[in-house]
Amino acid sequence: MELKVNGKNQSLDVPAHTPLLQALRESLQLTGTKYGCGEGACGACMVLVDGTPTPSCITPVSNVRNREVITIEGISVNGKLHAVQKAFLAEEALQCGYCTPGMIISAVALLNKNPEPTESQIKEAMQRNVCRCCVYPYIVKAIQTASKMK
């Protein structure tokens, strides 16, 4: 299976139906993408597929052949944090941090599409992502902060 992940071509020896989440975590050791529910209902496993936030736990690896996959590890470039990552730190938009990679992926996708989203657009775009620690208001704030940084 030929994949392009975080700009690198990868060749994986896994069955076509393997969830992308497992391929990333087990075959490529990209463990920043998390398992949360296995049904695409919590957002912990979000990755970008051709720029679209996609729950990797319900996406067979064969679906992303010849497509550009970006994981949380590919969001910062050469150790330089992305504006969204900086904003999450600045606004302390996390507690346990388990949802954070998926949150950042969804936020990056949103800002790429809509650089100045309103509060309600942010909430709508982020609705699939769960933060069980419930610091949602800080996450909204972080996305607004990142929007201004750009």
Binding site: K34, S76, G97, T100
Partner: peptide, 21 residues
Amino acid sequence: IPKINGEDFVTGRHIYTSDMT
């Protein structure tokens, strides 16, 4: 004081038990 290992979480570097091998 900000979360002292915060950067590990926003980069996905932090290794939770479920990430270990």
